[in-house]
């Protein structure tokens, strides 16, 4: 079954730049998809449209049965509860501990304290950070901070995990750690993962599905793809 359906989507920004031209895409439940392309290829725009930070100017995007483009600002939270998002810059709250940062995602949707405790610890275990529960973000390395962000993204058991250049700020070794964590999540939790990246090595090593974008056009969508230099 398709978790995501993108139909004839076009995105034109207010400054006149068109980031995506007539994009069609269907992503199955449980898959792990890389979105690759150079700067300005539209990969970030695509991710942003999936969690509705941006609205498409034309076409339809369905995520988990929700028509994202038609979603009112007030109802965006319904979409966001179905997915987790990981950014290049982690976006943690500096005044909260690791535990609190992850728990935050559950508190704001009104979960019970016991449930929060149980799920937060499970998520932190999944990203191998159980021993840093009481640390603050600035006491952690970049890779650890990103793992906290991943724990926060998966703590509510989303069907979909969107990652926008999650390894962009990390060295190759730390990047592979992150990829291992993501791969485990994909396998053990069955979470669909869509990850925008321009890290050639990662894409080639992981051998997952690859969506290649160039100047806002879909170049190809391959199973077990690699980073195609020419296409990019």
């Amino acid at each position: 079954m398709d978790l995501i359906r993108v139909r004839n989507v076009e995105k034109k920004y207010k400054n006149g730049v068109t980031a995506i031209y007539d994009l069609n895409l269907a992503i199955e439940k449980g898959s792990f998809v890389f979105v690759i392309g150079g700067s300005g290829s539209g990969k970030s725009t695509l991710i942003k449209m999936l969690y509705r930070e941006e609205k498409p100017t034309k076409g339809q995007i369905i995520v988990g049965g929700l028509d994202v483009a038609k979603l009112k600002n007030k109802k965006v939270y319904k979409l966001r509860r179905k997915l987790g998002i990981v950014f290049q810059d982690y976006r943690l709250l500096p005044k909260l501990t690791v535990y609190e940062n992850v728990a935050f995602a559950m508190e704001v949707i009104g979960a019970k304290k016991d449930e929060i405790r149980q799920k937060v610890l499970k998520a932190l275990e999944d990203v191998d950070l159980k021993n840093k529960v009481h640390n603050y973000p600035d006491q952690l390395s970049g890779g650890e901070q990103q793992r906290v962000a991943i724990a926060r993204a998966i703590v509510n058991d989303p069907k979909l995990l969107l990652c926008d250049e999650p390894t962009g700020n990390l060295d190759p070794e730390k990047s592979m750690e992150i990829m291992k964590v993501l791969n485990d999540i994909n396998k053990s939790r069955g979470t669909t993962i869509i990850m925008a990246t321009h890290d050639k090595e990662i894409v080639n090593k992981m051998k997952k599905q690859v969506v290649t974008l160039k100047d806002g056009h879909l170049v190809n969508f391959k199973q077990k793809g690699t980073y195609d230099n020419e296409a990019v």
Binding site: K74, Y77, R81, F104, V108
Partner: peptide, 15 residues
């Protein structure tokens, strides 16, 4: 930042 993160993790505007 806190508000934008709240939005991202699915807090309703009301919350």
């Amino acid at each position: 930042r806190e508000i934008s993160i709240m939005r991202l993790v699915g807090a309703s505007n009301f919350t």
